[in-house]
Design a protein around this nucleic acid. Structure first.
Length: 545
DNA sequence: CTATGACTACCATCCTCCCT
DNA sequence: AGGGAGGATGGTAGTCATAG
């Protein structure tokens, strides 16, 4: 095998200049840290002025990221990176939400002055600082990089760009990229190849169906199951998942013999892989341990987590993942109990807070992302009739937003059955509209991303779970039952622009209530700024059938 | 040769019902 | 009231047939 440290062919990257590898923060981040000390409104305004001067091409507002770089975790002294949206003016502050209340408070008052504070780090539109941070992994003592953030913080973007850069710099790097479901794997593969080709300025040409340089992008199950030894007796029932569990128990050398070794390992939405953990006779086996075993520690080991998703999904987490997440308490408890979950965020905020015993609070109310409009319809006896009305509402939304030049719509349901019903209904209804539309599912969208024909409107109809990890500018949640917070969170967090809920009166009312609480109690300062509907808001009004 | 859809298997989760 | 069993639904995977 080629020595990864040996000299490589000179390859100039066409976009970014070679940055100095350093442990400290880039200068502008230090400046931002100074400007935002105390995190008061006036300091933020000052910081924004500074940013507008530094980045004149960017006027859309702020993203705030929180780093616990200075926490001095005994496990990973290097760095950890926590991201969360605070607000984004470009979409009229609509995306403030989907944080639980305590998180939102934390974001506005991250830490007391003088304590070991969470560092508010400004990340410019292209997330350059996060990229640099990942890039320093190779030269750093601890090569592990964990990015935890709510949806939309750019975790996936950082992953694809970092992987593409590594491959563009050296084709021979053995890079492994894993995630949970197939649509996301397809998307990641396409994005990495696209980005890599761009960096190489078109000099890379795949040869004869070759999948490119030595990058493996797949789902965890497919990657692991692919090489799981088959059952010795073909007639015998073969449970591949059981076989996988046996693989998880193997030791490092055996694993390397089966899977080979990789210099760079990237895992997106990695919290979902905890499904493959198991506990046998008191001994737990973990996907994380397995992947660490096939990592040769010459490159970076990159994980992205969505902590809030952990809250909702009730996922079992082993000690190893707990270490990665950097919480001092029993994360299993943290995850299972909504009243404790905010502590995992506090744990990142300051050492004092982390070590302090936090009194039991009432469960923080799970708050909704501000919804553009809810479109309720009755759904009781004959569901199909009522869902027909729902589809009419969806068509209205699509018509309205096409006038605003939106070309991609995402409609998410709970079940596949409802998804196909909506798909059929839309096909009939949209055939009457003048624009061409193509309906597809999440996997098809991921496969053809970036290759849309001019003027073509794409409408994705799929289940929420299958769309996990992907994002859309206009998302319509169709017929999600109220009270299903995990699903609601997943669905809402898929939206980067306008979110609609088309559903039962109960679900819509619940959404309105949550938004009301959110506006009045969590972000009053932001809510006050938009008394009248901002420009660009739809002219649709509440519809009650 | 490749993409797609229909079918199957297995496991996880949630909800409901029933028993203690 | 609390816990367990069972059903419905979701996810993943695989195989096979078919169409382009």
């Amino acid at each position: 095998m080629a020595d990864p440290m040996q000299e490589t062919e000179a390859m100039e990257l066409d976009d970014e200049p070679e940055a100095e590898v350093r442990d400290g923060m880039p200068e502008f981040l230090e400046k931002m840290l100074h400007l935002t000390a105390g995190h008061r409104k006036e300091t933020i305004d000052g910081a924004k002025e500074f940013l507008k001067k530094e980045f004149p091409d960017w006027e859309s507002g702020c993203r705030w990221e929180y780093s616990a770089a200075l926490l001095g975790s005994p496990v990973f002294p290097a760095t950890r990176f926590i991201g969360a949206w605070c607000f984004q003016e470009s979409i009229n502050n609509r995306n403030v939400g989907w944080l639980i209340e305590e998180t939102a408070k934390l974001l506005r008052h991250p830490a007391e002055e003088g304590s070991n504070p969470a560092i508010p780090i400004f990340v410019p539109p292209h997330l350059r600082s996060a990229m640099d941070w990942v890039r320093t992994a190779d030269a750093s003592r601890d090569k592990r990089r964990v990015i935890a953030g709510v949806a939309g913080t750019g975790k996936t973007w950082i992953l694809t760009e970092s992987a593409a850069r590594i491959l563009a710099e050296d084709f021979r790097s053995r890079v492994l990229v894993l995630c949970f479901n197939r649509p996301l794997a397809i998307y990641l593969r396409n994005e990495i190849h696209r980005s890599m080709k761009k960096k190489l300025g078109g000099r890379w040409k795949p040869v004869g169906g070759c999948r490119g340089p030595s990058v493996t992008v797949d789902t965890f199950f497919a990657f692991m199951g692919w090489k799981v030894p088959d059952a010795p007796d073909p007639d015998e029932d073969f449970n591949r998942k059981e076989a996988l569990k046996n693989v998880l128990k193997m030791r490092g050398e055996d694993l390397k013999a089966i899977y080979g070794s990789y210099s760079h390992v990237f895992i997106d939405e990695s919290i979902n892989l905890c499904f493959y953990n198991s506990v046998d006779e008191g001994k737990s086996t973990s996907w994380l341990g397995l992947l660490e075993n096939i990592w040769d520690e010459t490159g970076c080991f990159f994980l992205s987590f969505d902590l809030e998703q952990c809250v909702y999904s009730k996922i079992e987490v082993t000690d190893r993942e707990r270490e990665y997440l950097g919480v001092s308490q029993d994360l299993k408890q943290v995850i299972r109990s909504p009243s404790l979950v905010c502590d995992s965020f506090l744990a990142h905020a300051s050492k004092e807070t982390r070590e302090k015993k936090i009194p039991t609070r009432e469960c923080p109310q799970v708050l909704g992302m501000p919804v553009v409009y809810c479109e309720p319809y009755l759904r009781h006896v004959s569901w199909s009739d009522c869902d027909v009305q729902g589809i009419e509402n969806v068509v209205r939304i699509i018509e309205e937003y096409e006038l605003r030049d939106v070309k991609e719509f995402v409609i998410l349901t709970e079940t596949r059955q409802l998804a196909s019903f909506v798909g059929e209904g839309l096909k009939r209804a949209l055939s009457k509209l003048k624009h061409r539309h193509s309906l597809c599912d999440a996997a098809t969208l991921a496969r053809s991303h970036g290759s849309a024909m001019d003027g073509e409107r794409r409408i994705v109809v799929d289940t929420v779970r299958r769309y996990q990890g992907l994002q859309g500018s206009v998302v319509i949640l169709f017929g999600l039952p109220s009270g299903q917070d995990p699903l609601m969170y997943l669905g809402k967090s898929r939206c980067s622009g306008f979110l609609f809920v088309v559903g039962t009166e109960g679900a819509c009312e619940e959404m309105r209530q949550k938004e009301k609480v959110y506006k009045n109690e969590v972000t009053p300062s932001i809510s006050r700024k938009r008394k009248e509907e901002p420009e660009g808001a739809p002219s649709l009004k509440w519809i009650k059938i």
